[in-house]
């Protein structure tokens, strides 16, 4: 059974891979596109990776790129969204 702390840690690791920034510089980011410099292909592949993660934990659940590729999307919102999709 997955818990919130593990989901938070994993989402931060995904963001580390896509932003090239260490965890310490990511956790408080308010805008994924600006502070982490995620461009359109990065959002597409990040969403793809997160779908794989979510479906592994909660078969049938998913998320769409358009849900996270917005100007004001924060790290906190992403953690909440993934947590919700895996049933936490």
């Amino acid at each position: 059974m997955i818990d919130s702390a593990t989901v938070r840690k994993d989402v931060l690791h995904f963001l580390e891979a896509f932003s090239g920034k260490p965890n310490a510089d990511i956790k408080d980011a308010d805008r994924l596109s600006i502070e982490l410099h995620l461009d359109h292909p990065a959002f597409i592949f990040l969403a793809m990776s997160l779908r794989g993660y979510i479906q592994h934990l909660a078969p049938g659940a998913t998320l769409k790129t358009s849900e996270i590729e917005t100007d004001s999307f924060t790290v906190l919102k992403l953690i909440e969204l993934v947590s919700q999709r895996v049933g936490l």
Binding site: D10, H13, F14, E16, A17, S19, G20, K21, P22, N23, F45, M48, S49, G52, Y53
Partner: peptide, 17 residues
């Protein structure tokens, strides 16, 4: 067309992901 292998900020593989 993915999926992709993941690498950390220091370039090390993140195989768990």
């Amino acid at each position: 067309i993915g999926p992709l292998k993941h690498y950390g900020a220091d370039g090390s593989p993140m195989k768990d992901l």
